[in-house]
Design a protein around this nucleic acid. Structure first.
Length: 934
RNA sequence: GCCGAAGUGGUGAAAUUGGUAGACACGCACGUUUCAGGGGCGUGUGGCGCAAGCUGUGCGGGUUCGAGUCCCGCCUUCGGCACCA
């Protein structure tokens, strides 16, 4: 027994870490009489750099929640694992010749060592690693279920391919047309076939047709090809049209690749957002990504030298149909070569050549540049027969809608600029709302020059026009989504191999019993150069048998992460991805804590996989995460010294303007606040051993900047160092105290003393000067009970609202008050120790055991607060007029009776006088009467 | 440009949802402790003012007995998307 100092903290924390492990207190069972609660962290990618203080932020929050829920009587699942496939390990292997499996295992060990010191309550027996064959066996298995499914649009859900086949046998595909006509190529001409046609197709044709429907399918899709790196890059490795690494140009190139048909789930992914508890911004990011727009498809006739053609456009504004002054096609549009007139051929060819010459970078850099060419043909407005010219231009994207638009210059800014640039006439259909120099996209104008919708308000005319289009067979209402299908092939080594075998170039699912298809051993991680991944180098593996071939691509890291939360429920199962009973028992994740950077990719894929597995009957829920909390990033607080150019002289920040200087990052460890420790600086690097300094007021003051934590900025704060000096409990509480969880904030170790002092004071409440336990069994006073119950209530409220910074404050207030009351009563201390346990488990457990408890504090129950102690300082007084309560007043207990009477009379008068406009509630506090005016 | 979030002391931030703005903590100042010290404890600390007092939550209006909180219009910062018809 000693003071709560550095050595004692080490002893306590070490002791309990051991003890908890020995007693296996974190193990969770899959059945219980208690209600379940599932608290999940986004599992980390184990990078080589180890943890910095930013990483544990979310983990601490989720740990507090899970410990609290456990104290509240829930059976809590709180697992951890590793997203262990991925590019950095592969890149490291290329650079250092160390196999990804080796470096990944080493990194995982480092992570676990660091995590274990922070006192997390993970059930490590449930750990998963996505690169483990016993795990990715089931990633591959789920992939095969997706491959074996199609989306029945009539029912809005996924079904087995066998059901589609029986539909084809009975009725052909007339009720289930190809989902994506872009890829519907196996049939010559028509995209519709009858049952008898289906039955006459050979197996190869059938497979190709089925491929068009599968939720995991092969197709020629664009990839980002980087010639300089000789490899394909993922979208997030391409920044503004150049490679993330090296900044080399990137071009689009077609390759046969796997995709997931996530677009079929666009609507469900969108409506699902309404029933889950994500932040507004997170939902908004997903909504934007899905990008739903409602409008109509309208078909125009086009007259050209070669004859009549149909041109279909998508528009969200069918009400502007009479303002159409021209049409624009994407340069890639298939109709371009059909309708280009002889006279315009030169212009069009020149333009197509120009478009082709432009790289992605050029396009992005010059978005505002207006270019285009006239095709020489005219389209006919289906309502009034007006002929308008058809142009081509880059600003119309081939990949969205139909790749063609009807241009309404008075209402659309881009169309307007285009019209002005090429001197095309502009029809005004919105009267005064159009000023002749700028388009106005309003929906509230009264329509003019608009035939049968003249005089109508625009937003009301939309449905009228659609009805008329459908009536005349000229178009129909249509919903469009920006979201594209998800590319699922990566030309990489360190990922899950696709569990398929190609025969005659068609992929067939491997048998379930043959899984996992293990990643073959290799020491060659370099891309094959042909655009294929490193696995293509392993010829024996790829062409493993005559006439049979394996896929040389691997899945993206999103694959393993799309379902890991399901595996935690039953991580050692080798008969299924998880037992149905376990899945049903744990159900949805109640709280998911992680960074907002996964807003689109990971969260959408996880939601997609769960929806598919739900449709196929494996899950009884179709949203994985009930509630999502995005913890903010913790940034680094960098420090700079200023070296006078060409010298070894360093000038203090305030004086640097008088010199020509270069800023250099300096290790934050040798700076106290902003003052540099000059001796430590001289020792830091040999170059600085005889550095000279120009000081201000005898000090060297450093410059500062908030940046991402990075080794190269020397601003990384390692949690191990904090734990070494203050202990894990202080680290945990301080990270929470720093500010609201969702906020990003720079790390600053300065305030940590406050939290440390609190823990010491709390410790001292129950200990005498010699460090011996000193609690009394006296009955607590009303005042002490008030402090206790107010604290318990506040802590409950705060944890339920994920407001951990205020709970830490509340503990401080509580301990300050108890200190000044000199309260060391067991009846007060004991419940507070339980309340503190989620935040500072080590010290709580130690106090708990000192108080004579033999069982771990985890199995205690969170003390309930009692309202009766909280209402004591004020009372409520109803104010009645004619026997009806019209307002309530709260009076402080110590308010003199005469004053209360005066106020009540005055209030009644006010309420009568103002006829009910008076306040419902008036707070009256000592020394002040709030706004009583007669 | 569009969408989302947010602007409160020297600093991190509270404000139980419309009711004493700045809790709690850092920092700072003063005091104290047989205190060598950057340690412990205590007091003070939004600004102006000796004071009573005045003023104060990005800016300008509004609603209300009462606004950090609600409404309208701006400004700034941070995130997301970016020719999506």
């Amino acid at each position: 027994m000693a003071d709560y100092n550095k050595d004692e903290i080490k002893r306590i924390e070490g002791k309990w870490r051991e003890e908890w492990k020995k007693r296996d207190v974190y193990r969770v069972e899959n059945q219980s009489d208690k209600p379940k609660y599932y608290v999940l962290d986004m599992f980390p990618y184990p990078s080589g750099a180890g943890l910095h203080v930013g990483h544990p932020l979310g983990y601490i929050a989720s740990d507090i929640v899970s410990r609290y829920k456990r104290l509240k009587g829930f059976n809590v699942l709180h697992p951890m694992g590793f997203d262990a496939f991925g590019l950095p390990a592969e890149q490291y292997a290329i650079d250092h010749g160390i196999h990804p499996a080796v470096s990944t295992a080493a990194n995982i060990k480092t992570f676990k060592d660091q995590l274990s010191k922070i006192g997390f309550s993970y059930d490590w027996s449930r750990e998963v690693q996505t690169c483990d064959p016993s795990y990715y066996r089931w990633t591959q298995w789920i992939f095969l279920q997706i491959f074996d499914s199609w989306f029945n649009r009539k029912k809005g859900k996924a079904e087995r391919i066998t059901e589609l086949i029986s539909v084809f046998e009975k009725e052909g595909n007339k009720n289930h047309p190809f989902p994506n006509t872009k890829y519907a190529v196996p049939l010559s001409g028509s995209t519709e076939f009858s049952p008898s046609e289906w039955n006459s197709f050979d197996d190869r044709t059938r497979q190709e047709i089925l491929m068009q429907y599968r939720l995991a399918y092969l197709a020629y899709t664009d990839v980002n090809w980087c010639e300089a790196l000789g490899t394909v890059l993922a979208n997030d490795e391409v920044i503004n049209g150049v490679s993330y690494r090296g900044g080399y140009p990137v071009v689009k190139r077609q390759m046969r690749q796997w995709s997931l048909r996530i677009t079929e789930y666009a609507e469900r992914l969108l409506t699902g957002l309404d029933v889950i508890d994500f932040s507004d911004s997170m939902k908004e990011i997903q909504r934007n990504w899905i990008g739903k727009s409602v409008g109509a498809r309208i078909t125009f006739e086009v007259k050209s030298e070669k004859g009549q053609h149909k041109l279909t456009v998508f528009t969200t504004r069918p009400d502007t149909i009479f303002g159409v002054d021209f049409m624009v096609l994407a340069p890639e549009h298939e109709l371009v070569k059909e309708i280009t007139s002889t006279k315009q051929q030169g212009d069009v060819d020149a333009y197509l050549k120009y478009v082709e010459s432009r790289s992605e970078i050029d396009r992005m850099a010059e978005v505002k540049k207006i270019t285009g060419a006239f095709t020489g043909s005219y389209a006919i407005n289906p309502f009034n027969g007006r002929e308008v010219p058809v142009w081509i231009s880059e600003y119309v994207l081939a990949g969205y809608g139909t790749g063609a638009i009807m241009a309404v210059p008075c209402g659309d800014e881009r169309d307007h600029k285009f019209a002005k640039h090429f001197n095309l006439p502009i029809t005004n259909i919105i009267g005064d709302h159009y000023n002749g120099t700028e388009a106005n996209p309003t929906k509230d104008a009264i329509l003019q020059n608009s035939d049968f919708i003249n005089g109508m308000v625009m937003h009301k005319a939309i449905d009228v026009v659609i009805a008329k289009l459908e009536e005349n067979g000229l178009g129909k209402s249509q919903v469009n989504y920006k979201m594209r299908d998800a590319g699922w092939s990566r030309q990489r080594y360190w990922g899950e191999p696709f569990p398929v075998v190609y025969k005659d170039d068609m992929p067939y699912a491997m048998d379930e019993t043959e899984l996992p298809l293990e990643l073959p051993e290799s020491n060659n991680f370099k891309p094959s150069g042909s655009g294929e991944g490193p696995l293509a180098n392993l010829k024996d593996w790829v062409n493993f048998s005559a006439g049979k071939r394996r896929d040389s691509n691997t899945m993206p890291t999103h694959a393993g992460a799309a379902w890991y939360f399901l595996r935690y429920t039953d991580p050692h199962n080798d008969k299924a991805f998880a037992d149905k009973k376990a899945l049903d028992y744990w159900g949805q994740v109640d709280v998911y804590v992680g960074g907002s950077e996964h807003a689109v990719a990971h969260l959408l894929y996880a939601r997609l996989w769960v929806k598919i597995l739900h449709d196929l009957g494996y899950l009884n829920f179709d949203e994985p995460f009930k509630k999502l909390i995005n913890q903010g990033k913790i940034t680094g607080d960098s420090r700079f010294v200023y070296r006078v150019r060409g010298t070894n002289k360093f000038v203090s920040s305030g004086l640097k303007e008088s010199f020509d200087t270069d800023p250099l990052h300096v290790d934050v460890k040798i700076v106290s606040g902003h003052e540099l420790d000059i001796q430590a600086f001289k020792r830091w690097k040999p170059d600085f051993a005889d550095a000279e300094f120009i000081l201000e007021d005898g000090k060297y003051i450093c410059g500062a900047a908030v940046e991402k934590m990075s080794k190269s900025y020397f601003n990384v704060v390692n949690p191990d160092d904090i734990i070494e000096n203050y202990g894990a409990d202080t680290l945990r509480m301080y990270e929470m105290f720093l500010g609201p969880l969702e906020l990003s904030k720079p790390w600053n170790t300065h305030g940590i003393d406050g939290v440390y002092k609190f823990l010491r004071r709390f410790w001292n409440l129950a200990h005498d000067n010699n460090g011996n336990l000193n609690v009394s069994n006296e009955e607590p006073t009303r005042e002490e009970l008030k402090v206790l119950h107010r604290t318990l209530k506040k802590i409950e409220y705060d944890i339920d609202h994920f407001s951990f910074n205020t709970s830490v404050s509340e503990f401080m207030i509580c301990s300050n008050e108890l200190s000044s009351l000199k309260c060391n009563k067991r009846a007060i201390i004991e419940p507070l120790v339980i309340a503190l346990a989620p935040f500072a488990p080590h010290i709580a457990e130690e106090l708990w055991s000192e108080l004579g408890k033999t069982d771990t504090i985890f199995n205690a129950s969170f003390p309930a607060y009692d309202e009766q102690y909280l209402k004591e300082n004020s009372f409520e007084y109803p104010i009645s007029i004619n026997g009806k309560v019209r307002a309530k007043m709260n009076f402080a207990l110590d308010m003199p009776k005469e004053d209360i009477e005066k106020i009540v009379l005055a209030s009644e008068a006010v309420i009568k006088w103002t006829e009910g406009k008076a306040p419902k509630k008036i707070i009256v506090v000592p020394g002040r009467i709030v706004n009583l005016v007669i």
